[in-house]
Computed example of a mutant assay.
Amino acid sequence: MTFSWNPPDLHDRTFVVTGATSGIGRATATALARAGAGARVVLAVRDVDKGARVAAEIPGETEVRPLDLADLSSVRAFAEGWDGPIDVLVNNAGVSVPDLRRSVDGFELQLATNHLGPFALTNLLLPHITDRVVTLASQAERAARLDLDDLERQRTPYKEFRTYAGTKQANLLFSAELQRRLHAVGSPVRTAAAHPGFVATGMSQGSGGLGGLMTRLLAQSPEDGALPVLYAATADLPGDSFTGPEHLMHMRGGAELINRSATAKDPDLARRLWDLSERLTGVTFLALRP
């Protein structure tokens, strides 16, 4: 089953898109806002001034709210300031950094931004979410060697791509375990993960050498990269779906359901990662908050 973006009726639906000031996040927010009168798109961003400039260029009803996923106090403030339903939360924001850096909470920065922040945000917002949670992952997860005993790179050498791949595998494990927990409590909320393919964004365009050449020759636009995200956010898909592009080994064009690595399907690993993430963030599963 393939997908082309034919916007459904999004009247009176609220979407929260993290990292919506550039790249895939901006393309996703723009497409959702343009899809139909009445949709409300909230840009959850670190730089609210930049967010306001972006929102001014997007047609439809938009709102900008501050959110730094690498700062758990910012995540909590965003959740505490929310009132009303959220139809779809899109965990889009992510980073890849060349050297070992720490978040304000002391976590390795990619882990903090790409996994722990979205983990905490999603759980804190679950009492408000009515339809689904979409988390951006990547086929890079197939190169991961996720070590739950050293997630924060305290002992093993830091390697940018390997660390990034590990966070993307964590995204898939998180999505699967969240769906299991939601199903166990009878919640109608669904989860989905999306792989945008090979996209020319700020993260990829900064690379040089062969990587830079491949980006210039093969990378698709953020608008095309947003198609699997829009598919995951609006199509009638089963819980814990994984979407990606249709062509060039799921790297370009369109959107369809795709597979993931055997490790990313491991339910025991997903449960152990969840338990560790709860300990690190201090945030637990809140779907049944009174």
Rank of each mutant, 00 (worst) to 15 (best):
L210E: 14
A140K: 12
R180T: 10
G197C: 07
R142V: 05
V45C: 13
T243W: 10
L89M: 14
R190M: 02
T14K: 03
R216M: 06
M249H: 08
A31W: 08
L32M: 08
R145L: 01
S207F: 15
F242Q: 12
V64K: 10
L213S: 10
V134N: 08
T243V: 09
S96K: 03
L172A: 14
V88G: 04
L227P: 01
N259F: 00
T21G: 04
G254M: 06
A33Q: 07
L217R: 13
W274T: 02
G253I: 10
R180P: 00
L248Y: 14
E63C: 06
F107T: 14
A55P: 02
Q139Y: 01
A219I: 05
F242G: 07
D268I: 09
V189D: 07
V17L: 00
P8D: 14
A143C: 00
M203E: 06
R180A: 09
E141G: 10
G208P: 00
H115W: 12
W82R: 15
A37G: 07
G84F: 01
N171D: 15
L210G: 04
L172I: 15
H115G: 03
R46V: 11
A52M: 00
T167Y: 02
P59L: 12
K168C: 02
A120L: 12
R65A: 09
S277K: 06
A112K: 10
D99V: 14
L116Q: 11
A226R: 07
L151K: 11
H11D: 13
L230N: 09
P157E: 04
R279S: 15
E141I: 03
A232S: 09
D224R: 14
I86H: 01
L173A: 09
A56H: 12
D47F: 04
R13W: 02
H183K: 02
P222C: 02
L217N: 13
A70Y: 05
T113F: 05
P127M: 08
I258C: 13
N91V: 05
L173K: 08
L286R: 15
G19D: 07
P228N: 10
L257Q: 12
N92L: 03
L273S: 10
A255W: 05
A193R: 03
L89V: 11
L269Q: 14
P222I: 06
R53T: 07
R260A: 15
N171G: 11
R26T: 09
G244L: 13
R46P: 01
V54F: 04
G81Y: 03
S261V: 02
L172Y: 05
R102W: 06
F161G: 06
A192T: 15
T234M: 00
P290F: 03
P245D: 09
A93M: 06
H128G: 01
K168Y: 05
L121K: 04
S22Y: 09
R132P: 01
P245E: 13
T163C: 11
S22N: 12
R216E: 13
L100M: 06
N6P: 00
M251L: 11
G94V: 08
V199P: 04
L257P: 03
P59H: 13
A77E: 14
H11E: 04
T130Q: 04
L136Q: 11
M251I: 04
L32W: 13
V41Q: 09
